[in-house]
């Protein structure tokens, strides 16, 4: 319906095969290509497990973009000036545009956008945990646009060195746009940090509430993260969760401190000997609870998506109607 390249599972000879059932020669050739830094394209042979992992990864990323549009989107109609209103609209529009790009990339692997959205709505596929927290004030939008987007850039820049062509190309464009969001977010944060006492209090409160979800953003510690080795060999994953978290802390903690803000973790410090950041346990129990559906906004986010899906059903049906034909040239 959306006119993208959709690969059908029935056209893929090794659909559903376990890795040990794959043709060893083809598998060796595939791994050789990745090792040489070549990109895998939709028509190329790939083990089913690679396909499955990529669909999972790209789909989750796409869902994160549309769900991520919701907490910030509600603040567009409340934005306090023309400048902020226009920028926020453009930013949230970008996020939805990223979802569109990513769904298209995933469709090249054999899963349609409809299937992906159905799996989102049924809870079968996930999205980034960070969007299960509420954006309570205007300052939350500033923190999200700065620090959550900063996290996303680290994650996505890393992934953009990956092996699957369509995903890599989508990520390159996404990172380019995200870098504008970061500038917008930082600018908003600076205005609040240097503003009235009320604004500064609002900003500190937002940082207090968002710090833990941001620490969770890069995923569980490497000691708890499963099946990383094979994904790294296939260049589906390019860095571990802890590596990305360290990179984030290195880049942003000094900037946060520079603004006179307090990070709500008394144990946060860079160990001069190891060169690594040390921090309190950000409660990984909470991370798993939220990912499994018990966060402050899980139900609300999915309810809004279901509502939109339901409300728009007649439009999609009308677009599919066989007698719906253009009668005159459009332009």
């Amino acid at each position: 319906m959306y006119g993208n390249l959709v690969v059908r599972p029935e056209d893929i000879e090794n659909w559903g095969k376990k890795i040990e059932e794959e043709d060893p020669e083809k598998l060796a050739e595939f791994e050789g290509r990745i090792e040489r830094g070549e990109k895998i394209e939709p028509q190329d042979w790939m083990p089913f497990e690679y396909r499955r992992q990529l669909i999972r990864l790209i789909e989750q990323h796409a869902h994160s973009e549309i769900i991520g549009a919701l907490p910030e989107g509600t603040w567009i109609t409340r934005a306090p000036t023309f400048r902020r209103k226009l920028a926020l609209m453009a930013k949230v529009q970008d996020e939805v545009g990223h979802a569109q790009l990513l769904y298209s990339a995933a469709e090249t692997l054999g899963k349609s956008r409809e299937q992906m959205i159905n799996d989102l709505l049924s809870g079968k596929s996930k999205y980034s945990n960070v969007f299960n927290y509420p954006a309570k004030t205007w300052a939350d939008t500033a923190i999200i646009a700065w620090l959550v987007d900063a996290g996303a850039i680290i994650n996505q820049t890393t992934n953009s060195k990956g092996s699957y062509g369509p995903y890599v190309r989508a990520l390159e464009r996404i990172c380019w746009e995200e870098s504008f969001h970061l500038k917008y977010g930082y600018d908003s944060v600076v205005y609040l940090a240097t503003g009235t006492p009320k604004q500064r209090a609002m900003l500190q409160d937002a940082l207090n509430r968002w710090w833990r979800p941001i620490m969770h953003f890069f995923g569980p510690p490497d000691t708890q993260s499963v099946h990383t080795e094979k994904l790294i060999r296939w260049k589906v994953k390019l860095a571990t969760n802890d590596e990305m978290r360290q990179q984030f802390l290195d880049m942003y903690v000094p900037k946060i401190w520079e603004l006179g803000l307090t990070i709500p973790d008394p144990n946060l410090r860079k160990n001069p000997e190891t060169g690594r950041w040390e921090y309190s346990d950000p409660d990984w129990g909470e991370f798993w609870r939220v990912i499994n559906g018990d966060g402050p906004c899980n139900k609300e986010r999915l309810a809004v998506r279901r509502f939109a899906e339901e409300k728009g059903r007649w439009v999609r049906e009308a677009l599919r109607a066989p007698h719906a034909r253009y009668v005159t040239p459009l332009a």
Partner: peptide, 16 residues
């Protein structure tokens, strides 16, 4: 107000 709630993503983007 349609950003995030359109009938298809393409319309969220168009209205935005």
């Amino acid at each position: 107000e349609w950003i995030g709630l359109g009938p298809i993503l393409e319309e969220d983007i168009a209205f935005a």
